[in-house]
Amino acid sequence: MPPLTHYLALSAMLFAIGTMGVFLRRNVITILLSIEIMLNAVNLSFVAFGRYLGTIDGQIIVFFVITVAAAEAAVGLALVIALFRHRETLNPDAFTSLRW
């Protein structure tokens, strides 16, 4: 088995990619997808740590993360639909009516 650090490095890379997506993309849907990448990176490190320590708790946390991801996707996509109805665009920089 590859050392634990390699799993963690992979997880860190995925998390960085997700963060990059949130900062760089100008599309609400892609930003939500990037958040999913970040959640998955965290999941990977949880499972890797759980296997490393020989406990099952790492996998349990993954369940909760997946549940939170599902809730987040449902609310996030509902928001996307509501926003799209108002402005006909998915660019987050277009929704600035409350900014001064």
Binding site: N27, A70, L90, D93
Partner: peptide, 22 residues
Amino acid sequence: IMVLFLFVVMLLNAPQEDISRV
């Protein structure tokens, strides 16, 4: 979850991302 995303992408039929607007 991803079917939900696909569903919204298809429903909005939001095409390419516009870069130059803002």
